[in-house]
Design a protein around this nucleic acid. Structure first.
Length: 271
DNA sequence: CGGACAACCTGGCGGC
DNA sequence: TGCCGCCAGGTTGTCC
């Protein structure tokens, strides 16, 4: 579930804790989560490197290091937080990797379902180079969005989930953006009228900004870096609201499958 | 290109 | 109470 707003919230919460720190010891408990390296090589290469910057690109957390970059994708149940070394470590039964730092604290990666991935590369672009535009940046322009939509024949919702088309949107924000734009998730992208596509463009930005403002949606596993929940789930209009009334027209919210994904929408006002 | 589906994992939940 | 099977969802890879 961590999507753009959740990952952004985690990054903001961690930045001051890790930037400027040097890794002194690294351990990983589930080797398949490290992409392309053995846990030993991953650990030995990280030790001694400093964190120069911490940023987000799409749903990736990007650590710029004194040499190379560490990238972490939380997938669905990953968590990242800082704790005092050894403190209550046994309390986290899903701890998968520990990065000890030179201030006596440690960065912890916890992940119930083990879908999360860790990458250590010389250039971050090796991992994130294929991502589509960052929806809250100036690179994401209305004109380009309209032009790219017009070239797609598939359904609009799966397209919004395609990270090569646009980075950072997941199931929650896709449903919420389509509701706000009053567009049926099954519409073919190239059939959207210009005014509909423009509504969608603004809706994407609005729901992502709202998500960040409320520090993410804690539907089940997501937590902020300090362990607290976000509150965007209290502002959902469609996600997980099947059977409840649409806040715009009063009709009942439906849940269907679109592109093999659970999809929530209002059949009356999303056309 | 697009769509369907499996795979990667675990826990929660409904049904029996 | 326990067991079974489905569902949840981010991403990749395979197949048609």
């Amino acid at each position: 579930m961590p999507e753009l707003p959740e990952v952004e919230t985690v990054v903001r919460g961690l930045r001051d804790e890790v930037v400027g720190r040097r890794f002194t010891h690294v351990s990983c408990h589930w080797p398949p989560q490290i992409v392309g390296l053995s846990p030993e090589a991953f650990a030995s290469r990280l030790v001694g490197r400093c964190v120069e910057a911490l940023n987000r690109r799409g749903k990736f957390i990007v650590f710029d290091l004194s040499e190379g970059a560490l990238l972490i994708h939380l997938k669905m149940t990953g968590r990242l937080y800082v704790a005092a070394r050894g403190e209550r470590e046994e309390a986290d039964r899903w701890l998968r990797a520990v990065f000890e730092m030179d201030d006596g604290r440690e960065l912890r990666f916890s992940d119930l379902r083990k879908f999360g991935r860790l990458y250590l590369v010389s250039q971050a672009s090796q991992v994130i180079g294929g991502l589509g535009p960052e929806p809250l940046s100036d690179d994401f322009t209305l004109d380009e969005f309209l032009a790219r939509l017009a070239r797609r024949r598939g359904m609009i919702k799966p397209l919004l989930l395609n990270q090569r088309f646009i980075a950072g949107i997941g199931n929650i924000y896709a449903d919420e953006a389509l509701w706000l734009a009053r567009i049926d998730p099954r519409r073919r992208a190239d059939t959207l009228k210009p005014h509909e596509a423009e509504r969608l463009y603004h809706a994407i930005r609005t729901v992502l900004e709202d998500g960040i403002r409320y520090e993410g949606a804690s539907v089940n596993w997501y937590r902020k870096a300090d362990g607290a929940t976000g509150s965007y789930q209290d502002h959902f209009n469609v996600y997980r609201r099947a059977g409840q009334p649409c806040s715009r027209c009063g009709a009942s919210i439906h849940k269907i499958r679109v592109g093999q994904r659970g999809t929530h929408f209002c059949p009356t006002c999303q056309v």
